[in-house]
C-alpha cells in the first residue's frame, strides 16, 4: 500500500517552486545572464592568474618604459616597462578577493545579528538594533581612513573594516525579514503545530528570508570593491608591491596625459566588473521579486 502511494506521488505533476520560477525569470533577463557569465569568467581568470599571466608580475623593463598597446604587450606597459595586462590580472585577484571576502564577513555578521534580533524581539531586539543605529550614524568612511592610519595599511584590516561597515545594512534587512515573517500566518501555524524554534527557523523562516539576502549580497560586492578602490586610490588601501585596480587607476591618473592607456584599461576592468555585478543584482532582485533591498 505504501509503495503504491509513493508511486502515486512520484507520478504526480511536479509543481514549480518559487525558486524555479525565479530562475525562469532570471533566464529571460539577458543582461543579468551576460553579467553572470562575464563575472564567472573573471573569477576563473583570477584563480588561474599565476599560470596564465603573460609576464612575471615583478618583471621590469626600464629600457622599454611606458609603451602603448602592442603585439607583445596587449594592453601596453607602465613607466617601469611592466606588462599592464599582468598588472591588471594580479590587481583583479586582490580586488575580487576583497569584494568577496569582505562581503562574506558582512553576510556572516549581519545575517546572524539580524536573525537573532528579529527572532528574539522585545528588549534583546531593542538593544541590538539600537547598537546598529548608533554604528549606522558613524561616518565610517572617515573611520576607515583613520583605521588605516593607526594600524598601517594591511589587507586583513581592509577586509575587516569594510566588512564591519557593510554588515549593518545586512543586519537590518535580515531583521526586517524575520520580523515580517514572524507575523505571517504560516509561521503562526507552524508554532501551533508545536515546531521547535530551530526547525521553525530552518524550515519556515530562513528559506523565505533568503531571497532578499541573496540580492543584497550580490549588490554588496560591488560597493565593497568600490570602497577598496577608493581607499587604494587615496593610497590608504592596498600597498605596493601588491596591487589592485584602485591602485592602478591611481597610478594611471598621475600620468594620464602622456600614457592614457594606463588609466583607461584598469578603469575599464573595474567598471566592467561593477557593471556585471550590478546587472546580476538587479536581475536577481526582479527575479526574486524583492522590493527595496537597497534603499
Amino acid at each position: 500500500m505504501s509503495t503504491e502511494t509513493l508511486a502515486e506521488i512520484a507520478r504526480a505533476e511536479r509543481g514549480t517552486s518559487l525558486w524555479a520560477d525565479a530562475w525562469l525569470r532570471l533566464r529571460r533577463n539577458k543582461l543579468a545572464l551576460i553579467g553572470f557569465a562575464v563575472l564567472s569568467l573573471f573569477v576563473v581568470i583570477a584563480l588561474l592568474t599565476p599560470w596564465i599571466a603573460p609576464y612575471s608580475y615583478q618583471a621590469q623593463n626600464l629600457e622599454l618604459g611606458a609603451s602603448p598597446p602592442s603585439a607583445q604587450h596587449w594592453l601596453g606597459t607602465d613607466i617601469f616597462g611592466r606588462d599592464l595586462l599582468t598588472q591588471i590580472l594580479y590587481g583583479g585577484r586582490i580586488s575580487l578577493a576583497v569584494g568577496f571576502v569582505a562581503t562574506a564577513v558582512a553576510l556572516l555578521i549581519g545575517v546572524t545579528w539580524g536573525a537573532i534580533a528579529g527572532y528574539a524581539g522585545g528588549r534583546v531586539d531593542a538593544v541590538m538594533m539600537r547598537l546598529v543605529d548608533i554604528l549606522y550614524a558613524l561616518p565610517f568612511m572617515i573611520f576607515i581612513v583613520l583605521l588605516t592610519v593607526v594600524f598601517g595599511r594591511n589587507l586583513l584590516l581592509l577586509f575587516l573594516a569594510i566588512g564591519a561597515v557593510e554588515w549593518l545594512t545586512m543586519a537590518r534587512i535580515m531583521r526586517g525579514q524575520i520580523q515580517s515573517l514572524r507575523q505571517q500566518e504560516f509561521v503562526e501555524a507552524a508554532i501551533s503545530l508545536g515546531l521547535s524554534p530551530a526547525t521553525l527557523i530552518r524550515r519556515h523562516l530562513v528559506p523565505n528570508a533568503l531571497g532578499p539576502i541573496i540580492v543584497y549580497t550580490t549588490l554588496t560586492i560591488p560597493s565593497v570593491m568600490l570602497l577598496e578602490a577608493f581607499l587604494s586610490f587615496l593610497g590608504l588601501g592596498v600597498q605596493p608591491p601588491q596591487t589592485s585596480w584602485g591602485l592602478l587607476i591611481s597610478y594611471g591618473a598621475e600620468t594620464m596625459e602622456e600614457y592614457p592607456w594606463l588609466l583607461v584599461f584598469p578603469g575599464l576592468a573595474l567598471t566592467l566588473t561593477l557593471f556585471c555585478l550590478n546587472f546580476l543584482g538587479d536581475g536577481l532582485r526582479d527575479a526574486l521579486d524583492v522590493r527595496g533591498a537597497r534603499d
Binding site: 594611471g252 591618473a253 596625459e257 588609466l263
Partner: peptide, 22 residues
C-alpha cells in the same frame, strides 16, 4: 545612471579632465 554607479569618481574625474580639460 548605471554607468554613473559603476564609474567611481576617481575614474570619472581623470577621464573628464582628459576629455574636457586636455
Amino acid at each position: 545612471a548605471m554607468i554613473g554607479i559603476c564609474m567611481p569618481s576617481f575614474l570619472l574625474g581623470p577621464l573628464l579632465v582628459l576629455v574636457f580639460g586636455i
